[in-house]
């Protein structure tokens, strides 16, 4: 990752996440077609809902004839963590006009957020609109292209996880987490590792009683709270 925040460096930085996106996008296209939805509806979901894992929830619930309200609520819950991400991110774009903030929020994803947080460590803790918007749009296009490929391949491949692409996004989070740990000097290494261990334990035990939709949100809130407490206990 370079220090520049240009359109060019954005394309360079976003490349590894594109692989993950294509994989999951293709998987979504296949799953959606297998569930009986048309190519058009499959593409419309990726284009207008653009919600990664929540789209899998949406398709499953559509096919099960769930009521509209419960589909909307589930999709909202799966995506509720986005509020934390856009809150965190917005502090870096406060000087930009409102429309640019809205545009960045519109196309924000887990991946562009994680990439942006990593980028901060190389740019003296700065981000700009051009870089982030390019990362966002590249991810969006990749997601749609992936979905289209999957929707068309739909009948040929039944199990996309067989080719390892299902793991691509997880691998990306592992990579981004590691790069974040070694480059973020604002939190001590010991504290970071303590929180990650705590998150692991919380995820494990939390799975027994926290609904899957809420898990990430609850675990993240508790992990951050512990971070603040421990940081102050040390000082």
């Amino acid at each position: 990752m370079y220090a520049e925040l240009t359109r060019r460096s954005a394309w360079h930085d976003v490349l590894p996440t594109v692989l993950g996106y294509i994989g999951i996008g293709v998987a979504f296209g296949i799953v959606s077609r297998a569930a009986g939805l048309s190519i058009l509806v499959t593409l419309a979901t990726s284009t207008f809902v653009y919600a990664g894992s929540a789209q899998f929830v949406l398709v499953t619930m559509l096919v099960e004839h769930s009521p509209l309200l419960s589909i909307v609520l589930s999709v909202f819950l799966v995506n509720a963590r986005m509020m934390l991400m856009s809150t965190t991110l917005s502090t870096y774009f406060k000087q930009e006009p409102l429309w640019k903030n809205i545009l960045l929020g519109t196309f924000l994803t887990d991946e562009s957020f994680a990439l942006g947080m990593n980028k901060l460590n190389y740019t003296d803790r700065k981000l700009n609109f051009t870089w982030f918007n390019t990362v966002n749009l590249a991810s969006y296009l990749t997601w749609i292209v992936g979905t289209a490929l999957g929707a068309m391949l739909g009948s040929l491949i039944t199990d996309p996880t067989k080719f390892g692409f299902g793991f691509a996004v997880t691998a990306m989070f592992i990579g981004l987490l590691y790069l974040q740990i070694i480059s973020d000097k604002t939190i001590s290494l010991k504290l970071q590792l303590t929180i990650i261990l705590f998150v692991l334990i919380l995820t494990y035990f939390g799975m027994a009683f926290i609904p899957g939709n809420l898990l990430i949100l609850v675990v993240t809130l508790l992990g951050c709270a512990l971070g603040v407490i421990l940081k102050h206990a040390h000082n």
Binding site: M85, M117, L176, I181, I187
Partner: peptide, 13 residues
């Protein structure tokens, strides 16, 4: 509090 969001969210995912 938000400073801890990146590592916790990536670890949780």
């Amino acid at each position: 509090f938000l400073n801890f969001v990146p590592i916790t969210i990536m670890a949780a995912l």
